[in-house]
Structure formats: C-alpha cells, structure tokens
C-alpha cells in the first residue's frame, strides 16, 4: 500500500465506530489528493531502470482514487465515491451536496498530500506527508473534526477552512 492510502486510513480510523451508525451504501467518500499519485508514480516508474523491474503492486496505487478503494474495503463502505486532484478541489461543497441531495447520510471528506523525497527533487517542491479527514452527517450537529492521526493538520485544515 502506498503512503497516501496509509495516511488516509490512519486519518479515518478514529471514525470507525461512528461509521457503524450508517448503512454501508449510505456512506459517501469525497477525497482530495493534493498531489495526485505523483509520488507513487515516480516510485513505480523508477523501477523500469532497475534490476528489480516494475512493480505491479505499486502500479495499482498510481491511481489517486486507490485511496477510495482502500477506505471502502477497510470500512466496508459501498456508497458513492469522488476523487479530485489538487489543493483547491471543492471537497466540502461536494460532500455537502451528497448529503443535501439525499445520496448519502454520511460522508467521509479527506484531503491527502504526499510529496516524496524523489518527487520533491524531480519537481523541485518541498516534501509533504499530510492527511486530514472529516465526517459529515446528514442530520448531524455540523462538521466534526478528526485529527488524532494528522501529520500536519494546519496546512490541510487551512485549505479546507478556506472553502467553507
């Protein structure tokens, strides 16, 4: 499993008990992959020039939406999923829309950013390993913040706040 999926699982894990309050097909997943899957892309593609060769396991994680797959498998969530790339994806808007339209009773809204050391060097950007997740309920009291497992809450939460 790549680092982005691992971070997403850690950020969402504290919600596990609450998720049990909802039917599996009534929980949605709205995911923002700030840097897409580029770190995993770089790791996968580096294999073509090495003795070990390309890794089929890594290739699976060269889709940003693999985070949805891992979260849905871990928590047995069968509702709709939405994955966007970039720092400005309208995650909260889309989460709220799923609730308002009645497509979901609860939505896990998560933002993940991974820029590995090799990718940082390749793209000349700072390294990052961040995940932040919120659970939104259709009839709940409002946004619930979950940050027990955040690696750098400030940056991502600021991104989310800016969109509220």
């Amino acid at each position: 499993m790549d680092l982005a999926s691992q971070l997403a699982l850690l950020a969402v894990e504290p919600m596990a008990a609450q998720l049990g309050n909802f039917a599996a097909d009534r929980i949605g997943l709205v995911i923002g992959a700030v840097a897409g899957s580029l770190s995993t892309d770089a790791a996968y593609w580096s294999g073509h020039a090495t003795a070990g060769g390309l890794s089929p396991t890594l290739f699976i994680y060269t889709l940003p939406s693999s985070i949805i797959g891992e979260l849905s498998i871990r928590h047995k969530i069968t509702g709709p999923g939405l994955c966007s790339v970039g720092a400005n994806a309208p995650l909260l808007d889309e989460s709220a829309a799923l609730l308002r339209s009645g497509e979901a009773d609860a939505v896990i809204c998560a933002n993940i950013q991974v820029i590995s050391t090799p990718l940082a060097a390749l793209l000349q950007q700072p390294e990052a390993a961040v995940a932040h997740a919120l659970l939104l309920e259709r009839h709940g009291p409002g946004l619930r913040e979950w940050h027990q497992n955040d690696r750098d809450i400030k940056q991502v939460f600021a991104t989310l706040r800016a969109q509220i």
């Binding site: 097909d25 997943l29 699976i60 849905s72 498998i73 047995k76 069968t78 999923g81």
Partner: peptide, 9 residues
C-alpha cells in the same frame, strides 16, 4: 455510483 468494498484490482 457505488463501491464494491471488495478488492483493489
């Protein structure tokens, strides 16, 4: 839209 919640590939 739905998720299988079954297997990655």
């Amino acid at each position: 839209a739905s998720n299988d919640a079954n297997h990655m590939t």
